[in-house]
């Protein structure tokens, strides 16, 4: 069974007075299987963030449906959505979204505390994740005391500690220097090898190369997709760049 199924999803934004209607997504369909590592690429304004927000149940589609682990998001009551999100999804954001009021450790514990887990269990879960993400030495520090790369690894730890069905990453390398970005992408590949399903939105070609499959979105539609299969990172890089060039220059020839 697919972990995520997106079927014919459309999203229309209507301006406040109802005058302007903007089609952000049109008839988007795809599925993510367990253990997959999928990147969604597209230019600014192509609708990729809208798509991610809909998958994350932070926004509602105006058409079509989204199923996560077999459950239709539209059928979940508003009050249960937060808990559903907490139990099934992990998030990594471009700007980390760590809370300054908590230490690194407590930031990671936050979703577990919200789920009412015991402290001992939290600690047990933290140990392997912290060592895999190489943050075991900064657990007692505060977010404003650590570097951007460290912050993003902490955010990843927070996303992974709930053992989510699906890890959603929104431009995770966007605010990082290239070394930190490489390190994070290495970690993504590593946890994917351990079986973690990942869906990442990015416009960095380098980030997309690490994924096993890349979806391209243009003007709110799925435009193309590439499988990495046995390609090396360099070959994948070239394929993605070529696709992006087509999108940028004569993309609509295809339509």
């Amino acid at each position: 069974m697919s972990i995520l199924t997106v079927s014919n999803v459309g999203k229309i934004y209507t301006s406040r007075l109802g005058g302007n209607r903007v089609q952000a997504l049109t008839d988007v369909s795809f599925a993510v299987e367990p253990g997959e590592y999928v990147a969604i690429m597209g230019e600014s304004g192509s609708g990729k963030t809208t798509l991610l927000n809909i998958i994350a149940s932070l926004d509602k589609p105006t058409g079509g449906e989204v199923k996560i682990a077999g459950q239709n998001l539209a059928s979940i009551r508003e009050n249960d959505l937060a808990a559903f999100r907490r139990n099934n999804l992990g998030f990594v954001f471009q700007d980390f979204n760590l809370l300054d009021t908590f230490s690194v450790k407590d930031n990671i514990f936050l979703p577990l505390v919200l789920s009412g887990k015991k402290y001992d269990e939290m600690r047990e879960r933290l140990t392997p994740i912290a060592s895999r993400l190489r943050i075991q030495n900064i657990l007692e520090k505060y977010p404003y005391e650590i570097s951007g790369g460290q912050k993003q690894r902490v955010a990843a730890a927070r996303a992974l500690i709930t053992n989510p069905q699906l890890l959603l990453a929104d431009e995770p390398t966007g605010a990082l220097d290239s070394r930190s970005a490489d390190e994070l992408l290495g970690i993504f590949t590593e946890i994917n090898d351990f079986g973690q399903t990942i869906l990442m939105v990015t416009h960095s070609v380098k980030a997309a190369c690490t994924a096993k499959r890349v979806l391209f979105i243009k003007d709110g539609r799925v435009f193309h997709q590439l499988y990495k299969a046995n390609l090396s990172d360099d070959e994948m890089f070239k394929r993605i760049s070529d696709t992006l060039t087509i999108i940028a220059t004569g993309g609509d020839v295809h339509e």
């Binding site: 937060a82 907490r86 998030f91 809370l99 979703p111 919200l114 927070r158």
Partner: peptide, 15 residues
């Protein structure tokens, strides 16, 4: 900021 982040991490608006 806190309000937004906590929502993203899985706290409901009401909470």
């Amino acid at each position: 900021e806190r309000f937004l982040i906590m929502q993203k991490v899985g706290m409901s608006r009401a909470e």
